[in-house]
Design a protein around this nucleic acid. Structure first.
Length: 544
RNA sequence: GUUCCUGUAGCGUAAUCGGAUAACGCAAUCGCCUCCUAAGCGAUAGACUGUGAGUUCAAUUCUCAUCAGGAACGCCA
């Protein structure tokens, strides 16, 4: 609804400035001013026209204003203010219609066809199956999943993907680590090399195997069994943890499958044939510098084995072959040097490097007792996602991670996080929903939805209505800029205007018509709160 | 040394394509339940946006320099 109003206003303003002698095509845009006394929407167009028209911006603004038809544009008034802003005050009565739109569209309110059903692939988390998920994965999971939900909402055909590194060296170390722990359970003295994994989950796996087969593999060929058992066990744990974090994937893509299908070999042959590679020091290199990488990269090491990069090229070629219009990889800050390499790889396998966007999330540092805990799977020192979900809860965790922009360097103080989980802003939003639910429960007579507002003071609902109107645009902005935290801010804002209204007037009175009108509006608020939280992977509560 | 990210009130963050008096939460002070959930509301106080230049009618936002913190610079993954 607001889209149409603003589009019409924009068209009319364009017409007016053409009449005033502007030949250039200028994109007129509107801001929501911080201060409501500056109107509901404002534009800076007259300031931008000063150079072209060689006139004082205030004069230009006044001329535009005099030519603008208020009623046709659903405007109450238009003011010239500051250095030449045009401030628009919308016709509140007309805007009330948005309530009926929301009640009709329900959870589809705010959806759009912006993405035109284009296929888009979002790869995130992509944790190695060599241990449990830890805190850093939470951030990527919360971000990636919310981003996916937002993209879906604005009309993209989204595929969530998790790459499983089950083909490389680390699986070998994992297998050996489990076997060592298995031997240990039979009193055999073991030494773990520095590549070994030390997490408690390794010992758990060894115990499980012992429970199932006892000492069988002390005497028989054990490698494949331990390898499969370990990877499956960890992968299932990973899936469960993510599911409890409200994150599911459409595709779990196995690295190993790229070897099995011959895709890695084929990619390598392709790159060689095309002459994109060369041999040096007994290794095979890819000329990634041509695409702006700072140095060329090794594909085949001098010992004949492949680097991590090689199957990854095959992987991204595979993604392209599945017809995605756009690829998004969410990676940790430690991978930032990998971006140019990846873009070069995409170019070499026939894609446009701009097809892929890499979102880098800055590291989460964990602080306990005032000191940073260095986490690593190898050392086994890690705060797992499971621990966090159990202690802080999914709702609070997801809100906490996704409410900050990706580029902030987060310090997570564990003691504080647990202690403060009750103060998490997510409850503020959930509470708004629960309060409305409670109003409906307290009604003496059944609620009847109205289809016009005659008995209430609509001025009391100005802020609520304006906030409801902004929802579709907030989501589009969150999607195009890939900033889910925008939705958090919005949810908090909507909850705030509701709480404020709630305290301002008694909602349930003896006047039945009035009550029904108020609750019709609040029903719409509830729908939007629920939907915004859903985009963040957070649920609502009927009671708190 | 090179590359990426960050620096905003005591703390944690936000700020739309550069816009008006830099916003929100926590912490602090004061006020608000005979009444629909006080996990709430209202108010006060708190910021030379790390520093210095530049571009602009306008800079937290863009450019350069500089300081501080984090991350990466493998034939690891």
């Amino acid at each position: 609804m607001i889209e149409e109003i603003l589009k019409q206003l924009k068209d009319n303003l364009n017409k007016i400035i053409k009449e005033m002698g502007v030949t250039e095509d200028l994109d007129i845009f509107f801001d929501v001013p911080k201060d409501s006394s500056f109107g509901d929407y404002s534009t800076n167009i007259s300031m931008r026209l000063t150079k072209i028209l060689k006139k004082n911006p205030i004069l230009i603004a006044n001329e535009i204003k005099s030519k603008l038809d208020l009623t046709k544009n659903h405007l109450e008034k238009c003011e010239v203010a500051g250095q030449g802003f045009l401030n628009f005050f919308l016709d509140k009565k007309y805007l009330m219609q948005v309530v009926f739109q929301i009640l009709q569209e329900k959870e589809n309110y705010g959806s759009s066809n912006y993405g035109q059903n284009k296929k888009i692939n979002i790869e995130f988390v992509s944790a190695n199956p060599t241990g449990y998920l830890h805190i850093g994965h939470c951030r990527g999971a919360a971000y990636g999943d919310s981003l996916a939900r937002i993209y879906q909402k604005v009309g993209y055909n989204v595929s969530r993907e998790h790459y499983v590194n089950d083909g490389g060296n680390q699986i070998h170390h994992l297998t050996n680590s489990i076997y060592a722990r298995y031997q240990e359970l039979f009193g055999i003295e073991i030494t773990l090399d520095k590549e070994a994994y030390h997490g408690k989950e390794i010992i758990e796996i060894a115990k499980n195997i012992k429970d199932e087969v006892n000492d069988k593999y002390l005497h028989e060929e054990w490698y494949d069994y331990f390898c499969n058992y370990g990877v499956n066990y960890l992968l299932n744990g990973l899936k469960k943890d993510l599911k409890d974090f409200n994150v599911t994937f459409d595709t779990w893509f196995s690295e190993k499958s790229l070897y099995d299908s011959g895709a890695v070999k084929k990619t390598l042959e392709f790159l060689k044939e095309k002459g994109y590679t060369y041999e040096k020091d007994n290794a095979l290199w890819l000329k990634t510098t041509i695409y702006g990488d700072e140095k060329d990269r090794v594909l085949v090491k001098s010992d004949g084995t492949l680097t991590y990069f090689t199957p990854d090229i095959a992987y991204h070629a595979n993604k392209l072959s599945r017809g995605f219009a756009h690829l998004i990889d969410v990676l940790g800050a430690d991978h930032h040097g990998y971006i140019s390499r990846l873009k070069a790889a995409i170019a070499y396998v026939g894609g446009d490097p701009d097809l892929i966007d890499v979102e880098i999330l800055q590291m989460v540092r964990v602080i306990q007792n005032g000191e940073e805990i260095k986490m690593s799977k190898r050392s086994g020192k890690a705060i797992t996602m499971r621990d966090l979900i159990d202690e802080v809860g999914t709702d609070a965790l997801r809100f906490m991670f996704v409410s900050k922009s990706l580029s902030t360097h987060m310090d997570l103080d564990l003691d504080l996080a647990v202690k403060q989980s009750n103060e998490n802003p997510v409850y503020y939003v959930q509470y708004a929903y629960a309060r409305i639910a409670s109003l409906f429960r307290n009604l003496k007579q059944p609620f009847k939805q109205v289809n016009s507002f005659k008995h209430i003071d609509i001025n009391k609902f100005n802020r609520i209505i304006l906030t409801l109107l902004q929802y579709p645009q907030v989501i589009i902005e969150a999607a195009t800029k890939r900033i889910p935290h925008k939705v958090c801010q919005y949810a908090l804002n909507l909850a705030s205007v509701f709480h404020s209204y709630y305290n301002d007037e008694k909602i349930i009175t003896d006047n039945e018509e009035e009550v029904n009108e108020k609750l019709t509006i609040l029903k719409a608020v509830q729908i939007v709160i629920q939907d915004a939280l859903k985009l963040l992977g957070v649920g609502v509560k009927e009671e708190m």
